[in-house]
Design a protein around this nucleic acid. Structure first.
Length: 117
DNA sequence: ACTTTGACGACTG
DNA sequence: GCAGTCGCCAAAG
């Protein structure tokens, strides 16, 4: 493990990863919800930065379960990061998450919060 | 030390 | 529904 990795992990990212790791299979959380649950109410961007770091540092977290507003997938992730054609949408569908015609997710059904089940 | 950027979100017009 | 603005906090330049 490099110094850079430890440095990043030790910071508040740990809280964010902890939250993400708790998301059950087949459920999703929005960036905003994760930020709030981690203790940063309106820092949705921080979550994005944190998840980005996990990929660069090969940290294992179910990042595909973190989606944008209303469950809408961010276009860039779907296309870009497809390291091997693995898109977030595909991964989620594999877990049983269903998408609306406009690529949205019904958060009332698939959404999850630390205190929901 | 300062500025820009970023897997975002809420609010406004 | 869409475009513009501001807020957040950390990393990168």
């Amino acid at each position: 493990m490099s110094r850079a990795e430890r440095a990043i992990i030790q910071k508040s990212y740990t809280k964010i990863y902890a939250v993400v790791r708790k998301i059950p299979r087949g459920r999703v959380m929005t960036y905003g919800q994760v930020a709030t649950a981690a203790g940063y109410p309106r820092a949705a961007r921080l979550v994005g930065t944190a998840l980005r770091a996990t990929q660069l540092n090969k940290i294992v977290v179910p990042w595909q379960r973190v989606v944008g507003q209303r469950g809408r997938n961010m276009a860039q992730i779907a296309i870009k990061d497809a390291v091997g054609g693995t898109m977030q949408k595909k991964l989620l569908m594999k877990e049983g998450v269903r998408f609306t015609p406009s690529d949205g997710i019904d958060l009332d059904w698939f959404g999850w919060t630390p205190r929901s089940r």
